[in-house]
Computed example of a mutant assay.
Amino acid sequence: MSDLLPTGFLVLAGFALVVLLVNSLRILREYERGVVFQLGRFWSVKGPGLVILIPGLQQMVKVDLRVRVIDVPSQDIITRDNVSVKVNAVLYFQVVQPDRAIIQVENYLGATSQLAQTTLRAVLGKHELDELLSERERLNLDIQKILDAQTDSWGIKVTNVEIKHVDLGESMVRAIARQAEAERERRAKVIHAEGELQASQQLAQAAEILGRQPQALQLRYLETLTVIAADKNSTIVFPLPVDILGPLIEGMRRSDKPRDAG
């Protein structure tokens, strides 16, 4: 009986030793780091690979270093020109200093999400609606810089911010459609006026050249007749210069005067 007691004790002690050894081993993946605390105080950052902890004295918190994606919920924003819109976005960030992400902020995921929402409202509220619709790249960069500066103390790097969708009211959509239609009409009128100006300039140059060479005008008449005849038309319009009709009319008037006198 006395021999069984030491044997049982050794078995029990060996089992306890194995349990402690298993509890002291941690395996971290390539994208994970472990923030180790010893007696409640920060000790070091471990990983990746096998990490050995002292049971009862050391605790470890895992931190994922991969790029995380947060969907920023739709925010009610009033632009600088007093237009109410709803804007949502997506935020990309990653933890670059695991110890700060655990020690400096209670929940870095929630804190980053809330900060992104307030920053989105603050930045977009300083711009007009036209800028919000046409200059998204610049606004994305402004939001990213502000977020990156504020989350730097948390050990977080904001890599990208993208505005996904801008929701407008139906009345504002109709107003923008009318504005776009008016803009297209304005451009059409300007283009038509520029075309008339260019055409008048070309016609003035052509008239000047034809005025110096009367034979060129006759050649243009003949070319016009050739074009008309090629279309298989039954009616041919022959242009007659007005300067030819003038002498004929004057001669007819002179021949009618002696008859009236007799």
Rank of each mutant, 00 (worst) to 15 (best):
M1T: 10
T7W: 12
G8Y: 07
V18Q: 04
V22E: 07
S24L: 06
S24Q: 14
L28I: 05
R29I: 02
Y31H: 04
E32V: 05
G34Q: 02
V35G: 04
L39G: 04
W43I: 12
P48H: 14
L50S: 12
I52P: 13
Q58S: 03
V63D: 09
L65Q: 00
R66E: 08
I70Q: 10
I70L: 12
Q75C: 03
D76Q: 07
I77F: 00
I78Q: 04
T79L: 02
R80W: 14
R80P: 05
N88G: 00
A89F: 11
F93G: 02
A101H: 03
I102S: 01
I102K: 02
V105Q: 00
N107I: 13
N107L: 08
A111Y: 00
L115R: 08
L120D: 05
A122Y: 01
A122N: 15
L124Q: 05
L133K: 00
Q144P: 02
D148G: 10
T151I: 13
G155N: 00
K157M: 11
K164S: 12
V166N: 11
G169S: 10
E170Y: 05
E170G: 15
A175Q: 12
A177F: 15
E185F: 06
A206P: 04
A207R: 06
L219T: 10
L225W: 01
V227Q: 12
F238C: 09
P241Q: 15
I244Q: 07
G246L: 15
G246D: 14
M252H: 09
R253T: 15
S255I: 14
S255W: 13
D260H: 02
